[in-house]
């Protein structure tokens, strides 16, 4: 287990008859920023619900700071800042009221961090959150998360509703905040460009399983797109290749294997090819390479 803040072992969960995971295991090491990536419906929010104790899996368990996720003590909850999907907050309160409310629960509450972010909103402290735009509400929720100065941040779809400028600002702020304060962050987002700038490690999920868990740098250093021309109308399964396909005589596949090995694999599969080119990927392309384009 080592020095992991989050440890999930053999999670199995169904919604009705539909399998979400079977024997899913992962860890989040202390001091790392880990992004959970997956298509819609692969169970990212389900994982966060299990982690935060709002869903009991059919089998397996998650531990946070060594405590079972369905029975986390109040003292441990004070060490975990949780952003719920949709940036849900007490929207019947004003900016000032909600700060006053939360500050009583967190001994390390950082009022300046909260109001520093709120100043960017250009809204009156007495404005009710429900009367703000979706993006402004998201910013309030994120401000409250950062003000808690928690050791672990669990952020479900943190970039939802944010405009590009604020998203960039928040990503940079969060990265510095996490690194300087040695925070552990476990997050999901639909906007993968943000993740590339932010996360140290990623877990890429497909339906029911984890495809990869590794440092982003290692993923981008080893996973590549290979393109080549071929007379074949379609490609057979190729060892070590993800989502091979052909369009107008131009073939594409993704692989962790080096170029020489891909050449051998193509030859071994009986594919006649020419002009094999290896291209490095950004995180979004790597994600699509691993999970496919639907």
């Amino acid at each position: 287990m080592g020095d992991s803040v989050i440890v999930c072992r053999n999670l199995t969960h169904y919604y009705g008859e539909r399998l979400i995971y079977k024997d899913l295991s992962f860890e989040v090491p202390r001091g790392r920023i880990l992004g959970l990536l997956g298509k819609n419906g692969t169970g990212k929010t389900t994982a966060i619900n299990i982690l935060s104790g709002y869903l009991r899996p059919r089998a397996g368990e998650c531990r946070i700071f060594g405590e079972r996720s369905e029975a986390i003590s109040p003292a441990t909850r004070a060490r975990i800042a949780l952003l719920i999907e949709g940036h849900v907050q007490y929207s019947y309160m004003t900016i000032a009221q909600i700060e006053r409310f939360y500050s009583r629960f967190y001994p390390r509450w950082n009022r300046d961090a909260y109001y520093g972010l709120m100043e960017l909103l250009k809204v009156a402290p007495r404005q009710r959150i429900s009367r703000m735009s979706c993006g402004q509400r998201s910013q309030v929720a994120l401000g409250l998360i950062l003000a808690q100065d928690a050791e672990l941040l669990v952020l479900d779809d943190f970039s939802m509703g944010l405009d590009p400028g604020y998203r960039r600002l928040f990503v940079e702020y969060l990265r510095d905040y996490a690194r300087n304060g040695a925070k552990t962050v476990f997050l999901t987002s639909h906007i993968i460009q943000d993740m590339e700038k932010l996360v140290d490690d990623c877990i890429v999920m497909d339906y029911g399983r984890i495809l990869v868990q590794m440092p982003v740098r290692e993923l981008l250093g080893s996973f590549a797109r290979y393109t080549f021309t071929t007379g074949a109308a379609e490609l057979p399964p190729i060892e070590g290749a993800f989502h091979p396909g052909v369009m107008n005589g131009r073939a594409e596949l993704f692989s962790f294997a080096p170029q020489r090995q891909v050449e051998q694999a193509l030859g071994g599969a009986g594919i006649v090819f020419d002009g094999l080119v290896r291209e490095s990927l950004n995180l979004e392309d790597a994600f699509i390479g691993l999970t496919g384009k639907y």
Partner: peptide
């Protein structure tokens, strides 16, 4: 009702209080 709207009860139960 406000606690259950948007499942806001998650926020309440996550606060460091029994």
């Amino acid at each position: 009702i406000p606690e259950m709207s948007q499942r806001r009860l998650k926020l309440t139960l996550h606060l460091p209080f029994p």
